[in-house]
Amino acid sequence: MGDLVIRNLTRSFVRDDGELLTAIEKIDLTIRQKEFICVLGPSGCGKTTFLRMIAGLDQATSGEIMLDGEQIQGPNPKIGIVFQEYSLFPWRNVIDNVAFGLEMQGIGREERYRIAHQYLDLVGLSQFSQSYPSELSGGMKQRVAVARALALEPVVLLMDEPFGALDAQTRNLLQKELLEIWQKTKKTIIFVTHSVDEAVFLGDRLVVLTSRPGRICEVIPIDLIRPRDRTSIEFAQLRRQVLDLIAQPKCSLQ
């Protein structure tokens, strides 16, 4: 469970002035279950569009995305997402946010609170179950968002620069926590970021996109042993390799 096959995926938009804009062009990618994929690219390269199509929030112009052999048509409970912006519902307290998806599935109050507490525990925020999102820090909000996405037990977890708005310290902490959660729950994770450091620290493989239109420039396996040490020589070498690649004409602006 959690195998994603992406074939010849293209997404273009017609702009207001009638010009055709291609955001994503001919992406072919096979993601194995339980793999941690980082999608790396400059701003405006179509990373978010790519992720939204996997989520079913956006339709491909051509090509297809298959999850465990089934084509993705629209939002699907097997796929969870954590957005870059804070997306917790401000009118619901933390536990009711986490239990929201279960409530929509018609699961009874007691059972959904039990499951929600379990995931809140996983992100280490049990004692904040009655708080409202406005009372939480940015890092805590994203932890709750992770718990909310996981509570539906998806096989694939999509993350769209989820730590982008956080300070460096919180960001590093959340990256570590995310790896622990990934190791415990064994989801397929697709993590979009523009930070090379973050991508090298987290991913099994790194998909580097070009910008406008977004094509796959290169897929780099990161075979550093986990837990990874950001300050090690190997880590630095991989970072340099990726940074050099991004700077090359074939991966940068066309």
Partner: peptide, 17 residues
């Protein structure tokens, strides 16, 4: 829009819900 999309991803897909 983010609330509507988050809702859709959490299984709230019909207009009524």
């Amino acid at each position: 829009r983010i609330f509507v999309e988050a809702g859709k991803m959490l299984g709230c897909t019909r207009n009524g819900t």
